[in-house]
Structure formats: structure tokens, C-alpha cells
Amino acid sequence: MPHWLMKSEPDEFSIQDLKQKGSGRWDGVRNYQARNYLREMRVGDSFFFYHSSCAEPGIAGIGRIARTAYPDPSALDHGSPYFDSKASTDRNPWSAVDVDFVEVFAAPLKLARLKTEPALQQLALVKKGSRLSVMPVSEEEWAAILALR
């Protein structure tokens, strides 16, 4: 099974929110490469839930893909911060996936810590200038991150 890392700002949607709800829609991705990764996901794929744009960014837990990519309804919602005036019901370039809660970590694995791990030096997250909100994680990187918990 492929593995992924998906970023969310915790004040918008956090691992705790997903835990409380049990499942949810991962939407609002507005980068074509990240969108393409969403489209590669399959039901059952695991992902690290990463809290970004906060005091201490880091991996906060694990989720699982519950539904493969479908047109992102937030692109058509005028009240959404992810509204796209160029999108329509016939031509919506954006995708969403549904996710399930798996686990919340006792303490987030901070980005600063992840950057020091030799096994993670090829992970896009730790590379300078990488800002993708969705990215693949290799089997080796997945195992190395789990070992840090």
C-alpha cells in the first residue's frame, strides 16, 4: 500500500477534529501536483496527518483514505475560501478525498526533528523550498517516521 503525507492547518482541520468526527473530506487542495497525488490515492492507503502553519509544525497522527478522488465541492461553493470562479459542475479541475481517523500521536513529531533524520533526507517535506500539501512517502520513510514515535 502506498503511503502519503497530507498537511492541514490545525485551526482549520486538525487530527483532533478528524478523531472526533471519525471521518471527513480532505478538500481545498489548490496545487496541481498535490491534486495529482490525491488522484493517485486508493482506498486503504495510509497517510501522516501533518499540522502546518502553526507554532510547532509536525506529524500529529495517521489517517487512512476512505474514498478515492472526486470533484472537490469546495471549488463551487461561493462561501468557501477554496472557491474557484473558473470551476463549474462540468469542469472542476480540483479533487477531494475522504479520510478516516486511525491514530493521534502522544506528541507531534516536529519538523525540526524530522529534518535531522538521515533516513528522511529525500522526503519532500524536509527539502528546502518544498511547499506541497500532499506528497508521497516511501516505505522506508514511513518506517523511519514510525520509529520516531
Rank of each mutant, 00 (worst) to 15 (best):
H51D: 10
P136C: 06
S85R: 15
D72V: 13
V43A: 07
G24E: 00
A143Q: 15
P10K: 00
E12A: 13
P73W: 15
P108F: 10
V137E: 00
R91P: 00
H51F: 08
L76A: 11
P118K: 10
L109E: 05
V137R: 04
F105C: 05
V43R: 12
G24R: 05
S130I: 02
T89S: 13
M41D: 05
G24H: 11
F105I: 02
S23E: 13
G24P: 05
A124C: 00
R64L: 03
K115L: 05
P136G: 04
A69S: 14
I62T: 09
Y50A: 07
R113V: 13
Q121V: 05
G61I: 03
L76Y: 02
W4M: 11
M1N: 03
E140C: 01
N36W: 14
E103A: 05
R113Y: 11
M41E: 03
I145P: 09
Q121D: 09
K115R: 15
I65G: 10
P71V: 06
V102W: 00
G79W: 08
R42G: 04
S133Y: 03
R113L: 14
F101I: 03
L123W: 05
W4E: 08
Y50L: 06
K21F: 04
A34F: 09
D100G: 05
R25H: 02
F48D: 05
T89G: 03
Q121L: 04
L111A: 07
L114G: 03
P118H: 03
L18T: 01
L18P: 01
H78Y: 10
G44P: 12
V43Y: 01
S138G: 07
S95H: 08
G63A: 11
P57F: 13
A60V: 09
F105M: 02
D98M: 08
G58M: 07
D11K: 12
A66L: 14
S138Y: 11
G63C: 08
G44Y: 09
P2C: 04
S53C: 07
V102M: 10
L146S: 01
E103D: 08
A106C: 07
F83M: 09
I59L: 03
W94T: 11
S95G: 14
A124T: 12
M6P: 01
Q20K: 15
D17V: 01
P57R: 13
S85W: 03
